[in-house]
Write a protein that binds this DNA or RNA. Structure first.
Lengths: 138, 138
DNA sequence: TGAATATCATACAAATTTAGTAGGATTTTA
DNA sequence: TAAAATCCTACTAAATTTGTATGATATTCA
């Protein structure tokens, strides 16, 4: 399951996507409108910034703006930045690979199955974008 | 990601599947051969038993046996019993549904996307069985 | 220039979940 | 009835999640 932090991140990103191309949006605005604890939201936006998804401006009139177009930001990217691996096992993770203990990757059946599951999940999450998410609302 | 407990569960189930139709297997045997802490394994096997996947026999000559055929035990079932929900959001979980806070399900784009992702993942995990897992090892 | 505005950085803390241990009760077989 | 096994309840330690607190830093605008 996605952490609360990740759900917050998506909500913040949707908010910023709706202001894409406009003036920066303050953390406090997002916090109030999306009902996300302000100081927690600071961390989240900072994480997204470090991942190069957001830009920020300090001082009066400052705030955050989406750096990439909503249609170029896929959901897998966001999940990986905030939530971590998408795969069900570390040994089948593309971005967070770790060897499993006591398991020979060549002959591990669990690994083989989770690889197939991962591919199926990724096919969706890497294709769907923030824009798809917003448009799907009607 | 699947918890360590879930990975242990799969390993234990594979072990039991290899003894399907034969005499019961003791916890201690599985513990040693699969390198799973014994007392922790007790809990796991008990959970699987409560979910009706295993049968147990007490006393000398006792142990655990797989109650269902390996080819009739799909991976989603196991994950749900030990790990919990497969969906990425509680509001799109079939077996562990919970309403999200501050979210209208009719118009929530995040929900719409995670529904599609869930279906893709489930299509694999509900189709693949313990037998598939074992056979895929070669 | 300086006050107000905003992000940025670091550290801390509470709550929850995960991963295991301990000790004994219960049941079955021989 | 003794040995062998599961069963049950409670406890504990470690890790992760979900925040909070405090102040530093940068920017704008009068």
């Amino acid at each position: 399951m996605l952490s609360k932090k990740t759900q917050y991140a998506f909500r913040a990103l949707v908010h910023l996507a709706e202001n894409y191309g406009k003036a920066p949006v303050r953390i406090s605005t997002i916090s109030v409108q999306q009902k996300i604890p302000l100081k927690f939201l600071e961390h989240i936006l900072n994480d997204l910034k470090k991942a190069d998804l957001l830009e920020s401006k300090k001082g009066k009139g400052g705030g955050y703006i989406l750096k990439v177009s909503p249609k170029n930001l896929n959901l897998a990217k966001v999940i990986r930045v905030i939530n971590g691996p998408i795969a069900l096992l570390p040994c089948v993770s593309l971005n967070f690979y770790e060897k499993c203990i006591d398991c020979d990757e060549e002959t591990c059946g669990m690994r083989k199955m989770m690889l197939i599951a991962r591919d199926a999940t990724l096919k969706v999450l890497e294709k769907k974008t923030l824009e798809d998410m917003i448009e799907s609302r009607m």
